[in-house]
Amino acid sequence: MDLDLYRQIVEGSPDAVILGDREGVIRLWNAGATAIFGFTAEEAIGRSMDLIIPERLRARHWDGYNRTMVTGVSRYGAGDLLAVPAVTKDGRSISIEFTIQMLKGPAGEILGPVAIIRDVTKRFQREKELARRLKELEAKGAR
């Protein structure tokens, strides 16, 4: 396959494709990432992933990230769907789901993770509202 075709797939994806290096610096940021988070590639590339990680979750994120970079093992298996909050350029909190894949160099060394991310905020809010309504109905039925 042609390298240009890969570029088109990554750049044209409505999902965010973000690559972090071993230190957690953003090295790839596609148009989907811009649409979801609001930062352009020029604003994001070269910056820490803290850009989109809520401050209250950063310590936990970096503990796991650094451990994975040292051991090469993530507690999240290939294909595991992770769900976490994230932050946009304008400071909004959003809900995201993503998968990660560890990228390795020619000698098997860890280069860093690539994440494929989808904004699921609307679905998360609908589910939260349905759960609230169900709880109300159950409370009424228990009376």
Rank of each mutant, 00 (worst) to 15 (best):
M1C: 07
R7W: 00
I9G: 07
I9W: 12
G12C: 01
P14W: 01
A16D: 03
A16W: 04
V17P: 06
G20Q: 12
G20N: 15
G24R: 07
A31T: 12
A33H: 13
T34G: 03
A35L: 13
G38V: 00
E42M: 05
E43G: 08
A44Q: 07
S48W: 12
M49G: 13
D50C: 15
D50K: 05
I53S: 03
P54C: 05
E55M: 02
E55S: 04
E55H: 08
H61F: 14
Y65W: 04
Y65G: 09
T68I: 01
V70Q: 13
T71S: 15
T71E: 00
G72L: 11
S74G: 14
R75I: 02
Y76I: 09
A78H: 11
P85V: 04
A86F: 13
A86H: 06
V87A: 13
T88H: 00
K89Y: 03
S93M: 11
Q101W: 04
Q101G: 15
K104R: 15
P106K: 12
P106S: 13
A107N: 14
E109H: 03
L111W: 06
A115I: 07
R118Q: 12
F124S: 10
R126A: 11
R126I: 09
K128D: 10
E129F: 06
A131M: 12
R132P: 04
A139C: 03
